[in-house]
């Protein structure tokens, strides 16, 4: 099965087709679980998030709009948001992670164009190492502003202005 089939599967899911839903799950669950596990390293909690994410996918499949991105991006974004909500709910105090994010460990996904990822890499590389780490920890690990502030020993206001600076530079680089 090729990646081109995902939009068709999602259309069938929108019509309440359970077989299509099962196939959509088969095709996407490893990707989504990878995304969720970064945010919720405990597997039991990550599986709870997956269950909630796929319930949302089932309910809202008709809301998918192909003009606004690929099905896998849509589904991964839902999974990420569910996982972050769960992380914030279950750990209001925050649990610090001190592992550095290994940017090079990211593999080239088939679902996005190599150019797109390459452009993002180039632009992330242009950030200071600290700023890059901040963006990646927030986006991929789901760390909140407070968690970042605590882990890095800076006030939240400082984190916020660093994030804004990073976002502005990323934007300038990617759009420019």
């Amino acid at each position: 099965m090729s990646a081109e089939e995902l939009p068709d599967l999602l259309l069938a899911v929108a019509d309440g087709d359970r077989t299509a839903f099962a196939r959509f799950y088969e095709r996407t669950s490893a990707k989504l679980f990878g995304v969720v596990l970064r945010i919720l390293p405990e597997r039991a909690m990550a599986e709870d998030a997956m269950q909630e994410a796929y319930a949302k996918i089932w309910r809202n499949a008709a809301g998918f709009d192909a003009r606004r991105g690929s099905p896998i991006t849509w589904a991964a974004t839902i999974a990420r948001n569910v996982a972050i909500d769960l992380r914030r709910r279950e750990r209001p105090a925050g649990r610090t992670r001190d592992e550095d994010f290994d940017f090079d460990a990211l593999r080239d996904p088939q679902e996005v164009s190599a150019e797109q990822l390459a452009a993002l890499r180039v632009c992330l590389d242009r950030l200071d190492a600290d700023q890059r780490a901040l963006v990646l920890a927030a986006y991929l690990n789901g760390e909140s502003r407070e968690e970042l502030a605590e882990r890095l020993g800076h006030p939240t206001g400082t984190i916020k202005s660093w994030l804004h600076r990073s976002l502005a530079r990323l934007k300038g680089c990617l759009d420019g």
């Binding site: 309440g16 990211l106 991929l140």
Partner: peptide, 29 residues
Amino acid sequence: SPLLLAVPEEAPSSRLWTRIGAGAGPAND
């Protein structure tokens, strides 16, 4: 989002689908 999709995949346990498939209600939108 390209970054999100670059995260390494990890297969969930096979039990998970049982939970998810059972949770899908009779109708969606």
